[in-house]
Structures are given as C-alpha cells and as structure tokens.
Design a protein around this nucleic acid. Structure first.
Lengths: 234, 234
DNA sequence: TTGCGTACGTGATTTTTATCACACAGATCG
DNA sequence: CGATCTGTGTGATAAAAATCACGTACGCAA
C-alpha cells in the first residue's frame, strides 16, 4: 500500500478507485447539517476531512477491516449490517445525512477491527476524517463531544430496538418493522427491494418472506409491484 | 428498612434519601480500579459521588425510569436486561466492578428515560454520581473521556455479540453461550440458576431449556446438581 | 403430618420457521 | 431464437420451538 494511500487513509480498498474523482472541497453547502458546531470545529472538518463519493451498493466498510477514520454521511443513505460467520448480513440500522457510524467514532487512538459492514444504499457522499484529529476535537470542541455522545446514544438505542424485534417477535411482525423502517429511511412508499434481499437481511428465507408478503398484500397492507413493494398502511 | 422503601428511594429520587444508612466514604480502597484516573478526577469521584449498597436481587434501574446519575459498579455483579412489552426480561450483559452502564454515562444534561433494567446479581456496592458532574469531567479529564469511550465501545460490542446469537443461532447454542457467559462473569463452574430463570432471560420456555440441558448433561458438558448447574466443559 | 408453593421432567401436540423440489416469468446476451 | 440468470410462488416436508397436560420431588410452615 502506498504512502499516498495511507495518507488519505480511507476505509477500504473500494475507495481507492474513487480518490481521483473526488470533488473539490465544498463543505460549506453542508454547513446547515452542523448548525451547532463551532466555527472552529467546522473549519477543522473542512481542512482535515476529505469528501468521498460512493456509488449505490458500494461497500464502505467491511467486517474485519481496520478503522482509521471517522465517517459522516453528507448525502445519501447508508445501511449497516452485522455479519455472521457464514457470511449472511443481518440488517442493523440506517445512517442518514448528518449521522455517523458509532464504531468509527469510538475507536480512539488504537486501531481496531470493525465488526460490522456498511453499504451505500443510494449514491452517497461522505466526509472522512482520520481518527487522530477527531480524538483531539473531543476535548477541544464541546459540540463535537455532544455529537459523539448523541451518535452513540442513538445507535445504542437503535440496536436495542433491533434486539427487541429479534428477541421478542415473530417473522411477520419483524417483516412489518423492516418495511416501516425502510419506508421511513427512504421516505418513500415504494421500496425497490427483492424478497430475496429482505430474507437475507432478516436472516430468514426467501420462501418465508414471500408467503408473509402475500399475507400482507391480502390484508391490504402492501401492494406487490413487479419490481418492488408499495406500502399502503402499516 | 422495607424493600418497598429501598426501591422507591433508589429509583425515583437521587439515591440521597437513604444515604444516611450507608457506609461512610471509603473510596480509597477502590483506587486500584481506576489506576489511570488523574488524582484530580479521583478526588472528584470521592467528593461528588456517593457509595450505595444493594442487596442481591435488588433492582437498580427500571425501564421507563429517568436517569439522573452515572452508576459505576465497585463490588459485586450487576445484570442488564431489555424488557419486552409483556414484561419478560431479556438478558443483555453483565457489569463487573470498575464498569459502568453505558446508558447512564451518555445521558448528558437532558433527563432521559432508560430503556433497560438493571439488577444486582450478588450483593453489590455502587458509586453514584449526578450527571451534572460527569458531563464536566468529560471535558476536564482526559481519562474520564477514555473511560466513557471505552465503556461505550465495550457495551456496544457486547450488544452486537448478543445480536449475533439471537439472530444467527439456535437455542442449543444460545444456551451454551449463556452458560459460558455466566461461568465467566461469576468466575465459577457452579451456577445457582434455575432453568425457569434461564428460560426467561433467553426468552424461551422452561421446557425447552430443560430438554436442552438434559442433552448437555448427556454430552458430558454439564452436570445437573440439585439446585444448580455445574459446567464441565463448554 | 399435611398442604402448599416452586421447580423440574416428559410425552403429545401445535405453531413457526426452514428446507426441498419444482415450475414459471422476465431480462439479457450471443 | 434458445440459453442462462434472477427472482418468484407454492406444495410437501422437516426441524425448531412453544404450548399443553400431566406427574414428580423437595422445602417449608401451619
């Protein structure tokens, strides 16, 4: 790996392809997302961070990867998964613009392997900041500390909610929860997702999802389109 | 002092109400747990914190409760649960001496309702610090920041591990994991836990646990004692 | 001692979920 | 056009787990 690559220190190899295509810095248009950040902090975000674009479906972080950067979503939607030993990917939660992956914030100086997988759902723009800077910000900028603490709290609670569903509910309820979550995250009643993909993310099987989906459509809760699902009332 | 009063005092108000019945401050003997803390920080722990004792089985924090204090375990073992709507309590993880509940650290100034339940497994001693102090420490003491960040990382990863097991594994493997976790936490091969309790904490049923436990004993992995389980090799 | 409460063991049955087998529909590509 | 690839729908069956219906054992207190 070249020194140049390490200097930019992106999250994984995939980013390497996009380095040359990086936009010039134009963080100012994202200022509104970080309203409460001090000017000094925002200036640091601009100077220390790099803007990176990712294509829909692209993997941003893979299980076992080392985390050297904090990653903040500026545009688009990112999905986080937990990976099983056999490779199936269990859906945990979404990251929206202005949000950050908890894992990438917490890893202070020590380089740590990640235990989750991140994927861009839509085309996405990310701000990537080497961890050595963000650890300093933690002590210098009160609003950064709040950002980190708030991120952690939200991620933690979303994980708890996920646990509720796998621990306490049956597949039919879990499927409805999955659909509602995606409806909300994509802000759309039409989800272009295959049953196969849903089954993988719920760690179930295609046939089961197919049958449950049929039941949902019989109950008028969804309508099955040729390549997607329209949510009517959930 | 009645159990009802204790519960009331612990949960609804700052632990202050029955502080008079507690031991005098003797934090110095716990200094070794916080080796890396600056002297100033430790002094603050001593002056701002209160030492509280809890009896085995006592509830320390209930779902829906407001969190006004950071809670650090000094002695004993504490267990954390996620509660379902129907009231069943799903085991999340243990807190050992020197560890803290992530939720109680993160709630900055805003008063927040907790979404988990904590119970003392053994008789326990806790250090309780009002949140208004700990938020300041976050910016003043580098080692406190590390403590909080480390706590969060560990709790988050333990939650992820829990998710792995409910999402990807069958009850037999989950039971083994449960037993190993408790063996480690209690540092004992003999667990005085009833099958009924295990079933509740795994959100399964007594009969299922009973049958699986029989299988484990047939395979020589555990020995069933009259009031407990001896772990042989897991 | 008897009675009661709590925990346990186990067969039978049902529910839920996963798996297997196979047919079909639409897209793509040479 | 046929071959192939993906995604789907569905019946049959199997496996996992939950539930029901018992009977048993032990501690404890009236």
């Amino acid at each position: 790996m070249s020194a140049a690559f390490l200097k930019f220190a992106l999250l994984n190899y995939n980013f390497a392809h996009y380095l040359s295509t990086l936009k010039p810095h134009c963080m100012d248009k994202y200022r509104y997302m970080f309203k409460d950040f001090e000017e000094g902090l925002f200036a640091e975000l601009k100077s220390k961070g790099r803007i990176v674009e990712a294509k829909a479906g692209q993997s941003l972080l893979e299980s076992g990867q080392y985390i050297r950067n904090t990653m903040i979503v500026l545009e688009g939607l990112v999905k986080l998964f937990r990976e099983s030993d056999e490779g199936s990917e269990f859906f945990m939660y979404h990251l929206h613009p202005g949000e950050s992956c908890a894992l990438s914030l917490i890893c202070d100086r020590n380089v740590r392997a990640s235990s989750v997988t991140a994927k861009a759902v839509t085309d996405a723009v990310l701000l990537v900041v080497p961890l050595e800077h963000t650890e300093n910000w933690m002590r210098q900028y009160r609003t950064w500390y709040h950002f980190v603490v708030g991120t952690y709290r939200r991620r933690y609670e979303e994980l708890l909610e996920t646990i509720d569903h796998i621990a306490f509910q049956n597949m039919d309820e879990r499927l409805e929860f999955y659909l509602r979550r995606h409806q909300k995250a994509l802000n759309s009643n039409v989800l272009e997702i295959t049953n196969t993909q849903i089954a993988q993310e719920l760690n179930s099987s295609r046939e089961v999802v197919s049958r449950l989906m049929k039941k949902l459509s019989e109950n008028g809760k969804v309508r099955l389109l040729k390549n997607g699902i329209e949510i009517l009332k959930l």
